[in-house]
Design a protein around this nucleic acid. Structure first.
Lengths: 223, 223
DNA sequence: ATGAGATGGATACTAACACTATCGATAGTG
DNA sequence: CACTATCGATAGTGTTAGTATCCATCTCAT
């Protein structure tokens, strides 16, 4: 398969493919002559993966590059692949930026949940930062009860994630599922959360008669 | 309070504040003369909110602008504020882009979960798109069982979200909690999910003796 | 075999985004 | 009354994610 065919198959312009080659997102094809290369199905899959990470997962090119780098490195045991994928997709927060009690609250939550996690896990910083941000905004409604309910939900999702990983056919697919799932799972859950929020919102606060439905606020002037 | 003091209090440079004023992220102060304005605590809070949306929530300036716009518009009933916040923070996906069965699967999931949601809810598109993306990547491991576990988790989180909203002191704070919670909740859950994933991963796949711990893969050369 | 079109590699350019800097006219302050 | 601060406008900067152009091959249909 030549580059134009790779472009046609994936719907990605040739200059963009060249860009991905330059950035290391896409491995070079097999060179058949000094300026000819052959691409195959793995390249098609890789381009689709990259587009998924960028478009759906919202990663930057640099982050996506780190992710596919982890995918290509099969020397890493599966147990640690999560960490690599997580670190790749989680932007490193300013380390000493959080001077709130977020870190302690998250640590206490981990203890209550029986979570045993490495201190470098980026989720710790991420969650602590959010807690601190709530405090800084004066929103003190994120009680430990709320936090624990989030934690239970996280346990549920993590169990589902690992279940999906476990049902993979081989080690290579497992790794791929881990990496893809880490990124796409965030988006999937965010979408479901929005649906559940709306349902729960109407359950608690039914619209009075005659009030415009929320869908009527859909702004068609944006299109 | 003058602009320099607002800048000092929030740790945001004066030119940036001017930029936020231009972009409508920050309302103008009370003008005391043609070129003097007074700012108050509401401006301090607003700047902190904007920084939280941008830095922690990862929103763009345009998205943050839409969010604070929804905050400022108190003519909207609370029941629909979620929808506005959601639409503001969810990038509109290409509408006809998904030709997979993601939309049907999500619709079926909603039916099973008893979710009653407006068709314009951005979570529907978002989740459907993720499902389609999994399919396009050849990862067929997101079974309905996995999806349902995600949905249960989403219910849990949504209930916690609405619980937090319900405990707000007044309508204004409620709206604020809705908007902030929609954005920060995604980040909070993502962090907790990473922690739960690592815990669950080690539970299922314990490291063999002598294998480097995942934290040892923490790459200090990045700093 | 030969000319139209594609390819690889290099370089340069562009649009969008989030600031950042400068300017000129005025306003408040010691 | 010097001096800094402010407002509003305009312009410039650095980063990101591509696009575009060139050119010396290379391929393939005639």
């Amino acid at each position: 398969m030549r580059m134009s065919e790779l472009s046609a198959t994936t719907g990605t312009p040739v200059p963009t493919l060249k860009f991905y080659l330059r950035e290391g997102l896409l491995p070079a094809g097999e060179r058949t002559s000094p300026n000819q290369s052959q691409y195959d199905e793995t390249h098609v899959a890789r381009v689709r993966l990259v587009r998924a990470l960028l478009d759906v997962g919202g990663l930057s090119v640099a982050q996506a590059s780190a992710v596919v780098g982890a995918l290509d490195d099969d020397s890493v045991p599966l147990s640690t692949t999560f960490g690599i994928a997580q670190r790749a997709v989680t932007q490193p927060a300013a380390p000493a930026a959080s001077r709130g009690d977020g870190a302690q609250r998250i640590a206490a939550l981990c203890a209550r949940q029986g979570w045993n996690v490495h201190p470098y896990n980026p989720g710790l910083t991420m969650a602590a930062r959010v807690i601190d941000t709530y405090s800084a905004l004066g929103v003190e409604l994120i009680t430990d009860a709320v936090l624990e309910q989030y934690a239970q939900a996280a346990d549920l999702v993590a169990a589902a994630d690992l279940e999906a990983v476990a049902s993979a056919h081989d080690e290579a697919q497992m790794t791929s599922v881990v990496v893809v799932g880490t990124v796409l799972g965030d988006a999937l859950f965010a979408g479901l959360r929005r649906i559940a929020q709306e349902t729960e919102s109407f359950r608690r606060y039914p619209l009075p008669e005659g009030t415009p439905a929320p869908g009527d606020l859909y702004n068609p002037e944006e299109s």
